[in-house]
Design a protein around this nucleic acid. Structure first.
Lengths: 220, 220
DNA sequence: CTTGTGTTTTGAACACGTTCGAAACGCGAG
DNA sequence: CTCGCGTTTCGAACGTGTTCAAAACACAAG
């Protein structure tokens, strides 16, 4: 049973951690520093968070919650799929823009699925499904007609697309990450166009192929 | 100036490291253990290799060299592009199959380009260009006609495709990584088909779009 | 108030990557 | 042979993530 005071300590530690992570980056921040900043002993931090990476996880969960409103606004603001997806991406990047090093830690962990905070692992399933759901809403009643056979999988495809962009954004050292911005411009056009074209009569086989790829990923 | 004896010590350390990495994985292997296994003091390992990850780099360089012959055989064995690419992938995966944890370390480092051994960073440029060159050779005089405008970029696209597969392979915990095998089957078909279709008269604009994406990636 | 129990907090200790100053070695010059 | 100097080797020490046993605390029961 967690007491109210404990909950407060817990928050204090996370806040201290995020403050330091933002100021000097994830790697450069020491757990001892986090503890001192939060006014507790080193061990206390580990009492509330299993590891340094768990703090990232907590941040991840928090952003997911914080984004709900912004996401909803994006969907409501337009029926144009392109604008919607772009809007979702904007919210995402804005959330992480002050915390690039945390996203880097997240993606680093993404390599092995046993890691607690891999974006593809079990522990993050809830956040992931949440995010995928927003892409579903972006597609829903948008200006782009989606072929029935791939409708169920499209949200996940868009999510994967967005993960790829996140990855590139982290690698991107250009000033203001403008290479990423250009990449988004170029690929978003491509993606939307591809979707529009995919409804054409001759494209059935192509859609089937794509579905086959997705099935290859899923089936154990 | 490096003496012959030094060179031998250097090799001994790398061999010991790779042996241990193979037996118990990269993370689970201690630099102290590596040193002991090589019959030297801990410091000696750091005299020859700047860091634990540098050992991975050395392995990476070595595999690159070792693969040359196998790659050449693949290209020589068939003119069919699909078979060639499949062959290159097979060689790659075989090289890493005993060293999955090393590939994981490599991809982990891939997240930040400042890391010495990021597959996208400067330090690995030589190996990377080498690998891309092999995809160029696979395309050269193959059974698939390549449109001129994208010819120059195709090798790199194939290399990126292969990196994506590597990434998936690392994440893939299915027995014998058979999900990856299925993914290769499904995507390779897709890729080749796409290439074949891309020469059709109406596909000019699509190719232009793809090129635009690549340019967005390149330009600083 | 005292005792017992579960919760919270502490800080020393541990493991491991890495650094560093000193020692050992090898070898050409005198 | 001896000296000097660059190369190689050594192992103690440092920093940081993490663990753990013990102390402090909160509070309900008697």
């Amino acid at each position: 049973m967690a007491t109210a005071k404990a909950e407060e300590t817990r928050d204090r530690i996370l806040d201290a951690a995020l403050r330091l992570f933002r100021e000097r980056g994830f790697e450069q921040t020491t757990m001892r520093e986090v503890a001192i900043e939060a006014g507790v002993a080193t061990g206390a931090a580990y009492y509330y968070y299993r590891s340094k990476e768990d703090l990232v996880m907590a941040f991840y969960l928090r952003t997911d919650d914080d984004a709900k409103e912004a996401f909803a606004n994006v969907i409501a603001s337009s029926k144009e799929l392109k604008k919607r997806v772009r809007g979702l991406l904007d919210v995402k990047f804005e959330q992480f823009t002050e915390h690039r090093s945390l996203l880097a830690a997240l993606l680093k962990a993404g390599v092995d699925p046993r890691a607690r905070l891999s974006p593809f692992g079990k522990e993050t399933k809830e956040v992931r499904d949440d995010n995928i759901e927003w892409f579903a809403r972006a597609l829903d009643e948008s200006d782009v007609n989606v072929p029935k056979d791939i409708a169920a999988d499209l949200p996940r495809l868009l999510w994967m697309y967005h993960m790829g962009l996140m990855y590139f954004w982290i690698i991107d050292e250009s000033p203001g990450q403008r290479r990423t911005r250009r990449l988004i411009d170029a690929t978003l056009d491509l993606v939307i166009q591809l979707l529009k074209v995919s409804t054409l009569p001759l494209m059935g086989p192509l859609r089937k192929r794509v579905l086959k790829v997705l099935r290859a990923i899923d089936e154990e």
